[in-house]
């Protein structure tokens, strides 16, 4: 199956990316934890779609990736492509400035492939974030807590400038491997899991890798309307998502790849995250809540027009990544 995907694939998926069916064929056995990245289940949200009769709402369970988030896909592809190009080789460490899901994903992939990882994060990020990445053997470098995440970016770049031979800095915001992971993975999975019935796809913009890659491939596969979702204001609480008008625009972000932008208030996303817990038994993060809120909006628009549809979105990670800091770790990062 993967051989055939290679032939059909204009961008040349590397070995290991086109794994659809491999797990089933292997009777539940895999060679490496990395074989469990991708091919996530698609779950129907029946309690949510009850509000838009005639429209189905489905969500990709990206929290089922072994590192716990959608970021496993991009991290695995970025590392594999960098190894293939020789950017990562003996004596070179992957370095990035992240305390979030990408850092966890790099740590998991790095441990499994024997690639050493260095993460730069502000000293005041919460203790669990340090513990998870350290558990995988990742080297942590701390930046000035007063300078927030920008301070971590600056320090990471300085370390690379000082010792360019020691580090590979993948920059997921500008790395084509990021969106290609979704072009070759997320999109064909959605197409197969809905048996080509998907009519709409909606996903939030962070690095924009998910919406870019999935939209590009779904557009090639069929008549699918793809919607990019953004926080409605610069001051927002949808962690992992970017308000593009007030942010540095990721170089991989290209509005031509999708059909429409939807603006999402933080409260609507947070309320939906809570509703998913109670109504569907899905304890997911706020960006997942925003994505499902976006899917429901699309569903209601279709239902109001008397149309049917199959709307697909993404559950990026679990809610337990976002337990509020305890009092003794009350220093937040900004």
């Amino acid at each position: 199956m993967s051989e055939r995907a290679h032939v059909l694939d204009p961008h040349g998926a590397p070995a290991g990316v086109a794994l659809a069916g491999a797990l089933a064929a292997s009777n539940g056995r895999v060679d490496s934890i990395l074989d469990l990245v991708g091919n996530t289940p698609l779950v129907r949200l029946r309690a949510i779609e009850a509000e838009c009769p005639g429209v189905e709402i489905w969500a990709k369970c990206e929290f089922a990736n072994p590192g716990g988030s959608v970021k496993d896909r991009a991290a695995l592809r970025i590392v594999r492509d960098a190894l293939a190009r020789g950017d990562l080789r003996d004596g070179v460490r992957l370095i990035d400035s992240t305390s979030g899901n990408t850092g966890i994903a790099y740590s998991m992939v790095g441990a499994a492939l024997g690639v050493p990882i260095t993460l730069v994060m502000p000293e005041n990020v919460s203790v669990p974030r340090k513990q998870i990445t350290r558990a995988y053997g990742t080297e942590l470098v701390f930046s000035d807590p007063m300078e927030g995440s920008d301070g971590a970016i600056v320090l990471a770049r300085r370390l690379v400038d000082e010792q360019p031979g020691r580090y590979y800095y993948p920059n997921q915001y500008a790395n084509d491997s990021n969106w290609l992971a979704h072009y070759h993975g997320t999109a064909p999975e959605i197409w197969a899991q809905t048996e080509g019935r998907v009519t709409h796809f909606v996903a939030g913009v962070g690095t924009s890798g998910t919406i870019m890659g999935t939209s590009r491939r779904l557009h090639e596969l069929g008549d699918v309307r793809c919607v990019a979702l953004q926080p409605d204001d610069a001051m927002h609480g949808l962690e992992g998502l970017k308000h593009i008008p007030s942010s540095l625009v990721p170089p991989i972000y290209d509005e031509r790849a999708f059909d429409e932008t939807m603006w999402m208030p933080t409260d609507e996303g947070w309320d939906m995250a809570e509703r998913l817990e109670h109504a569907e038994g899905l304890f997911v993060g706020h960006s997942s809540g925003a994505n499902v809120a976006g899917a429901l909006r699309l569903g209601k628009q279709l239902a109001a027009q008397g149309r049917t549809g199959v709307v697909v979105t993404v559950l990026c990670d679990r809610g337990d990544r976002y337990f509020a800091p305890l009092r003794w770790e009350k220093h937040y990062v900004w």
């Binding site: 305390s99 994060m121 992992g240 900004w334």
Partner: peptide
Amino acid sequence: VPAIAGGR
């Protein structure tokens, strides 16, 4: 301070 931890 917005309650998002560093992002990404």
